[in-house]
Design a protein around this nucleic acid. Structure first.
Lengths: 213, 213
DNA sequence: GGCAAGGGTGAGCGAGCGCTTAGCGACCTC
DNA sequence: GAGGTCGCTAAGCGCTCGCTCACCCTTGCC
C-alpha cells in the first residue's frame, strides 16, 4: 500500500512538485517549524535557519510567511483528497472501499504527521481568501467519505441513521490522529490504520465488521 | 443532565473559583482570545482590552501570560476529569456508564467549545513543568475511560480486541469535537452527545448498541 | 484628618518581529 | 573579458511584543 513517495522513515515527501530546490528546502523547513511550534510562534528567521539560509532568502521565493503556509496547506489538502478519492472510487464493495479509505487516510495522518498537523490545525492562521480556497477542498474531502457511506446504506451493507453526523465523526476520528500520534510510540501508522478501519466499519454497522482484523 | 453552572447560552462558566473579580474577568477574556486566535497570536494588550483594563493590569493578577494559560488549562482539565469520573464511577452497567461518559464529555467539548479548545489544543504552548503537570491529568482522563471499557470486556458486554487503542480512539473522537463544533451549526451539544454515545457503543461492540437512539 | 495598602493607569523599555534594500559573487552569453 | 542575470547575504527599518515602573485614586483603620 505504500507509495514511491514514502521514505524508510515513513514520512511522506510529496514536495517534488515544488521548484527550485531552494524553495523546496524552505518549504520543508517551514513544515517542520509550523508543526513543532505553530504558525504564529514560528519566525521567518527560524525557517530560513533550518534551511541553511539567511532570513532574506525566504522572500526571494515567497512573498510572505503566509504564502508559505498557504502553499503547504493547498498541496497537503490536495494530497489528502487524492488519497481519499483513490480509495472511494476504487473497485469493491462500500465496506471494502470505506476500510481502504480510512486506513490510507489514517496512515497519511500518522506517517506524515508533521505535514498533517500543519494542514489540519493551522487553517485559521490563513487569511480570508486563502482559507476560503482550502475550505472548498475540505468540502470535497467530506463529500468523498459521505459518498461511500451513502453507497453502503443504499446496498444495505451499512446501518447509519445519521449519515451527515457519522461522516463528520469518521473524518474527525481520522484527522485527530495527527494531534496525538507519536513516531516513537508503540504503534506503526499501518497498525493504527487497520485498527481505525475496523472501528469505523463498526460505527457504520457494517455486516462483516467483526470479521476483519 | 445540565448543571447549575450552565447558562442559557449553553456555555459553561466554571470560573467561580477564580478571585478576585478582576482576575476572573481577565481569565475569561484570555480564554476567549486564546480560543479565537491561539495562544501565541494573542497579545496581552488584547486580553486586557477585552477585560476593559489597561495592559499593565494583567500583571497585578498574573505573573506572566503563560501563567494565565496554565491556570486555564489546569482548571479546564480538572473539570473534564470530574465530568468523566462522575460518569465512570456512577451506577449502571458498563454500557450505560460508557454512554453517559461519552455524551457528557462531548457535551462539555461542544457547549464549552471556547474553553475546550484552549484546554485541548494549547498544551504545547506551556513550558516544561506546567506541561508535565497537565499531562498527568490527561493520563487520569485516559485511565477513567479505559476503566469503563475494561469493565465492559470483563462482563462480556463489550467486544474489544485492542483496549488501549480503542480507548485512545474514543477519547480522540470526543476531543476533536472542540475543533469542528460550530455554535451556529445545525446540531446542539446534546444531539452530538447522543450521536457520539451511540457510535462509541458500536465501536466497543456493545450488545444493545443499535437499540439506543 | 493622616496614612498605609492595594488595585489600577500612562508611558515606555529592550527585544524580537516581518520584511526591504543595496550590493556581492557565480555563472551564462557573446 | 565585458555585461547582464540570478540567488543570496548583511544590515537595518518600522513596528509591536511581553513586561516594568513611577505614580494615582479609592478604601478602611486609627
Amino acid at each position: 500500500m505504500s507509495t514511491a513517495e514514502e521514505t524508510a522513515g515513513g514520512e511522506v515527501q510529496p514536495w517534488a512538485e515544488v521548484t527550485p530546490d531552494a524553495a523546496r528546502r524552505l518549504l520543508l523547513a517551514a513544515v517542520e517549524a509550523f508543526a513543532e511550534r505553530g504558525y504564529h510562534a514560528t519566525t521567518t528567521r527560524d525557517i530560513a535557519g533550518r534551511a541553511g539560509m539567511s532570513p532574506a532568502a525566504l522572500y526571494i521565493h515567497y512573498k510572505t510567511k503566509e504564502e508559505l503556509l498557504h502553499r503547504i496547506s493547498r498541496i497537503g489538502h490536495e494530497k489528502a483528497l487524492h488519497i481519499l478519492r483513490t480509495a472511494a472510487r476504487g473497485e469493491g464493495s462500500p465496506t471494502e472501499r470505506l476500510a481502504d479509505a480510512v486506513s490510507s487516510f489514517v496512515r497519511w495522518h500518522a506517517g506524515g504527521r508533521t505535514t498533517a498537523r500543519v494542514v489540519q490545525y493551522e487553517l485559521d492562521s490563513l487569511g480570508p481568501e486563502a482559507r476560503a480556497e482550502i475550505v472548498g477542498l475540505r468540502k470535497q474531502v467530506n463529500a468523498e467519505v459521505r459518498g461511500i457511506i451513502e453507497d453502503g446504506v443504499r446496498t444495505g451493507e451499512f446501518d447509519v441513521p445519521d449519515v451527515h453526523g457519522t461522516t463528520l465523526a469518521v473524518l474527525s476520528l481520522c484527522i485527530d490522529v495527527a494531534r496525538w500520534f507519536n513516531v516513537n510510540g508503540p504503534r506503526t501508522p499501518e497498525e493504527i490504520g487497520d485498527l481505525y478501519a475496523g472501528l469505523v466499519l463498526r460505527m457504520v454497522g457494517a455486516k462483516d465488521a467483526g470479521s476483519r482484523s
